[in-house]
């Protein structure tokens, strides 16, 4: 998580549902009512970085309440968690969020979700084995450039759908596993030449 980590920045831009706990004047435009103050109890989707700031800014509490409370985003909602419990491989995580794990870990830092952590761990490990399998199968050596992951994914055939559902962490993992397998093949062919 370096300062210039582009994935970290994009993760921070994910929207999460927030509920304002106090009336706030002049913020009505967030709720499409520019002329009125923002009422307490209004639900607004805020980017993660802003929600985090508001939620943990305890210093400005009014009557012991924080400005904002937040819920888990839809990507980490009950539906998704139940589906992941049933079969981690069958869920296209990318449809939920391109930065699914980043978002999830960030949310878990803000609020403790023991069950979510266990489910995520199982999901990640189960899908990682699948990712490795596809990374080894996909494509021969020398058919594709290094950077074109899109074209790699296209060759996958049966696994194509699965690979399209990978989030950014898993794509990185896929790239690493694939690079390893490719280097292995190249070396194997190189041995014969000299």
């Amino acid at each position: 998580m370096s300062y210039y980590d582009i994935d970290s920045i994009l993760t921070d831009a994910e929207k999460i549902p927030c509920t304002f706990q106090v009336d706030i004047p002049d913020l009505g435009y967030l709720d499409n009512t520019p002329t009125q103050p923002l009422k307490a109890g209004t639900k607004v989707s805020l980017p993660l970085w802003l929600a985090e700031m508001l939620a943990i800014a305890n210093t400005g509490d009014i009557e012991g309440k924080s400005f904002v409370t937040f819920d888990l985003p839809a990507a980490l909602g009950n539906d998704v968690v139940q589906a992941l419990k049933a079969d981690p491989r069958a869920v296209p995580l990318r449809d939920q969020s391109a930065h699914f794990y980043g978002l999830a870990t960030h949310m878990m830092e803000l609020s403790e979700e023991q069950e979510l952590a266990a489910v995520l761990r199982k999901t990640f490990v189960a899908r990682a084995a699948e990712v490795a399998l596809h990374a080894r199968k996909v494509g021969g050596v020398g058919h594709k450039g290094k950077g074109e992951e899109g074209s790699n994914l296209g060759i996958g055939g049966a696994g194509e759908e699965f690979l399209r559902g990978l989030d950014e962490w898993e794509r990185k993992l896929f790239r690493k596993a694939h690079d390893g397998a490719k280097a292995g093949k190249e070396w194997m062919e190189g041995v014969k030449k000299h």
Binding site: T105, E109, L120, F124, V125, A128, A132, W169
Partner: peptide, 16 residues
């Protein structure tokens, strides 16, 4: 690369 990636991912998921 793969194994380190998996271990690191598990670490990050379990960090909190």
């Amino acid at each position: 690369g793969f194994v380190l990636g998996v271990v690191d991912g598990v670490r990050k998921v379990g960090a909190s």
